[in-house]
């Protein structure tokens, strides 16, 4: 039997109340609880105070901004997957959500919970890294925001201070029409990815105006394949050019051996998934 240790339960109704509730030596936020409660059931985590943010409904909104879309922290994976605004501007989100866990877990798990849990194989950190998202953070000193490279520090480690909470993530719209695609290999449907790849391609005048490739499962955090992106930008927008650049995708990657896959296997998946994602993204960009 695995049960959580005792804790004090606090359920703020507003952001201000949440910030106050977090002013405690050993407080922990619970959002969907789909990563935290397993850890509490195993007693890997034993917070003294649990701050349940599920009643702060203002955190559930997805809205248009001048320059992009703002996804509220408490947006559930299942709601992100069927949101019309996201489907219109970032169809890659629904594609990626199909790989996140299972139906019941997607009904509860949240965007910010996934970002703050910071599993290097998780889909949301990869999406936000790919899409140049900005993570919005609220603390007792007010609001700040962080880029993915500042926010994700190591596996399960982020830049969030103990008394801060993530309120949402802002995704800037691409500078022009684009194509996006997501690919993943996992051991079984719904398992964390062994390797995942997300691509975004913009084509202008038959050349690559912008190419982005994000990778998960091959480093301490989600990463961008900057060498490949740089080499392709300005090239003719052809599948052959993408193919030729694929060896650059594994530059600087340091995957680990673990229970699920060897480092070599992970590395060998990168060009395969990168190729599929980039070619589909190119196809969509030029449709």
């Amino acid at each position: 039997m695995m049960k959580p240790a005792a804790f004090e339960y606090v359920r703020p109704e507003t952001l201000a109340e949440a910030v106050t509730a977090l002013d405690h030596d050993d407080a922990r936020i619970i959002a969907g609880g789909q990563s935290l409660l397993p850890m509490m059931n195993f007693r890997l985590v034993q917070p003294e105070r649990l701050v349940d943010i599920n009643r702060i409904t203002e955190l559930e909104r997805i809205e248009r901004t001048k320059t992009g879309l703002r996804i509220g922290a408490l947006t559930r994976h299942a709601n992100a997957a069927r949101d019309p605004l996201l489907a219109e501007h970032f169809p890659i989100v629904a594609e990626a959500m199909g790989h996140v866990a299972h139906v019941a877990i997607r009904n509860r798990g949240t965007v910010a919970g996934s970002l703050c849990h910071a599993d290097p194989s998780a889909e949301w950190p990869l999406l936000v890294t790919l899409l140049d998202g900005e993570i919005e953070i609220l603390g007792s000193d007010g609001h700040r925001s962080a880029e993915p490279s500042e926010f994700f520090l190591a596996p399960l480690v982020t830049d969030i201070e103990e008394q801060e909470l993530v309120t949402g993530v802002h995704l800037p719209l691409p500078a022009g029409p684009s194509g996006m695609a997501f690919e993943e290999v996992a051991q079984r449907a719904g398992d964390f990815a062994v390797v995942a790849a997300g691509a975004m391609v913009r084509v202008e005048n038959d050349t690559f105006a912008e190419v982005r490739l994000g990778l998960g499962g091959v480093f301490d955090t989600s990463v961008r394949a900057r060498a490949l992106e740089g080499a392709l930008t300005g090239q003719r927008a052809r599948a052959e050019e993408l193919e030729a650049a694929l060896p650059l995708a594994i530059e600087d990657l340091e995957p680990n051996d673990d229970l699920h896959a060897s480092a070599d296997y992970r590395l060998s998946l990168v060009p395969v998934l990168a190729r599929r994602a980039l070619i589909r993204a190119l196809h969509r960009a030029t449709q």
């Binding site: 695995m2 619970i30 397993p38 059931n41 877990i105």
Partner: peptide, 27 residues
């Protein structure tokens, strides 16, 4: 399993399925 993997604890809550081992009674 009590960590969200097996699914046998699945219930419907407010019209959608949820793992009852990954929710607190207070919730």
């Amino acid at each position: 399993c009590e960590h969200g993997v097996c699914g046998t604890c699945t219930i419907m809550m407010n019209g959608v399925s949820a793992r009852s081992c990954l929710m607190l009674a207070v919730q």
